[in-house]
Simulated scan of single mutants.
Amino acid sequence: MADQHAEATAPHVHGEMNISEQAWTWSLFMGLTKWLSLAMAVLILFLTVWFGVGAGFVPAFISSAVMAVVGFFVLKNKVSA
């Protein structure tokens, strides 16, 4: 009896696979990881300054806003010339 899966599986040939979808998925994953990490850091800083230190809402908001702006400029994609 012949193997049922023999026709469905082809031997892999290195270098002939289109990886554009894999590259797009990896780029999306890295971008989301980068920006969500910044968002989590800003949220943790905000809550720590507000409740942990007890400085109040305004100092917590200001320090978080500064961190968000600095983080944005540090993490944004660099455009090469």
Score class of each variant (00 low, 15 high):
Met1Thr: 11
Met1Val: 14
Met1Lys: 06
Ala2Val: 15
Ala2Asp: 10
Asp3Asn: 10
Gln4Thr: 10
Gln4Lys: 08
Glu7Met: 07
Glu7Gln: 11
Ala8Arg: 03
Ala10Gln: 14
Pro11Cys: 05
Pro11Ile: 12
His12Gln: 04
His12Cys: 02
Val13Arg: 14
His14Asn: 01
Glu16Asn: 11
Glu16Ala: 11
Met17Trp: 05
Met17Lys: 14
Asn18Ile: 07
Ile19Glu: 12
Ile19Leu: 15
Ser20Ile: 08
Glu21Lys: 13
Gln22Cys: 06
Gln22Met: 13
Gln22His: 09
Ala23Tyr: 07
Thr25Cys: 05
Thr25Glu: 06
Thr25His: 09
Trp26Ser: 13
Trp26Cys: 08
Ser27His: 13
Ser27Ile: 13
Leu28Asp: 03
Leu28Ser: 07
Phe29Trp: 13
Phe29Pro: 00
Met30Asp: 04
Met30Val: 14
Met30Cys: 12
Met30His: 10
Gly31Lys: 12
Gly31Arg: 13
Gly31Thr: 15
Leu32Met: 09
Leu32Val: 11
Leu32Thr: 04
Thr33Ser: 11
Thr33Glu: 03
Thr33Met: 14
Lys34Val: 02
Trp35Leu: 03
Trp35Thr: 02
Trp35Ala: 02
Ser37Tyr: 04
Leu38Gly: 04
Ala39Gly: 10
Val42Pro: 01
Val42Lys: 03
Val42Ala: 07
Leu45Lys: 07
Phe46Pro: 04
Phe46Gly: 06
Phe46Asp: 06
Leu47Asn: 13
Val49Ala: 06
Val49Gln: 04
Val49Thr: 13
Trp50Leu: 13
Phe51Gln: 09
Phe51Asp: 00
Gly52Leu: 06
Val53Pro: 00
Val58Glu: 07
Pro59Tyr: 01
Phe61Tyr: 12
Phe61Glu: 07
Ser63Tyr: 00
Ser64Phe: 03
Ala65His: 00
Ala65Tyr: 00
Val66Gln: 03
Val66Gly: 06
Met67Val: 07
Met67Trp: 02
Val69Tyr: 02
Val69Gln: 01
Val69Ile: 10
Val70Met: 01
Val70Lys: 02
Gly71Glu: 01
Phe72Leu: 05
Phe72Thr: 08
Phe73Trp: 06
Phe73Asp: 01
Val74Ile: 15
Leu75Val: 02
Lys76Arg: 15
Asn77Glu: 12
Asn77Pro: 05
Lys78Cys: 05
Val79Asn: 12
Val79Gly: 07
Val79His: 11
Val79Glu: 10
Ala81Val: 13
